[in-house]
Design a protein around this nucleic acid. Structure first.
Lengths: 111, 111
DNA sequence: ACTTTATATGAGCATATACGCATATACTTG
DNA sequence: CAAGTATATGCGTATATGCTCATATAAAGT
């Protein structure tokens, strides 16, 4: 597949949707909590300090987007990251933000 | 800087904000139009087939997020991508989506 | 100074979505 | 089958944001 052809409108909406899934602090906290492996909902609720209902909803969103995988074991449901690009995406953005912050730091130092 | 420490709430909001900036089809179209170099607003309006007002707003959003840079030349304003991570971010997401699509294609073929 | 051209912005409307509360569903155990 | 536990979901509300129309600003030419 080529790299230069412009994406169709439908493809752009998929890309946008993907970024939107990552555009919520609570969902990022969930992903962060899952960085070191699978957890069940109860553990996640505690890890991110949210309500059960809200955490559950965000987990649905991430699962529907194929970012997370779901595994049921008795009463509990375990979630895990199944999209390996998530790690790199977060690294890239964090790196970019660090540069931005050091830029700001410089500006403050100068003035 | 370490790679494993959990991000603060403030940092997570910055990361989320960054993803949110990329979570709109129109802004992605603008970025796509700028992939091969700087363009002025008029050219962008035509390239993405939007209204001047709307394009201008999205350009402000992207500029405020330090994704785009601005250069004024007479009556015209030229925008360009100044954040090099944008390219990699889009590549990663597109790659991930392609996998998703081929997964869907397989599923269709099987059933 | 007036007009024209390029870009930005204020106001209002429509839509999306995050959150909380309550309740439903699914599974286990007695 | 009743009760308890873990997770999901319907509903209402508040907030954010994208879009359009109209208008404002800024720079250039006459």
């Amino acid at each position: 597949m080529g790299k230069k052809s412009p994406l169709s409108e439908a493809a752009l909406e998929l890309v946008a949707r993907r970024f939107a899934v990552l555009a919520e602090p609570m969902r990022l906290r969930l992903l962060q909590a899952l960085f070191d492996g699978e957890k069940n909902v109860g553990e996640l609720v505690e890890a991110v300090d949210g309500t059960q209902a809200n955490v559950s909803r965000h987990l649905q969103t991430l699962t529907a987007a194929h970012v997370l995988g779901r595994r049921k074991e008795g009463l509990q449901v375990f979630y895990r990251i199944i999209d390996p690009t998530i790690f790199k995406l977060c690294e890239l953005v964090c790196g970019s933000l660090e540069k931005g912050l050091s830029r700001q730091a410089e500006a403050l130092a100068v003035e």
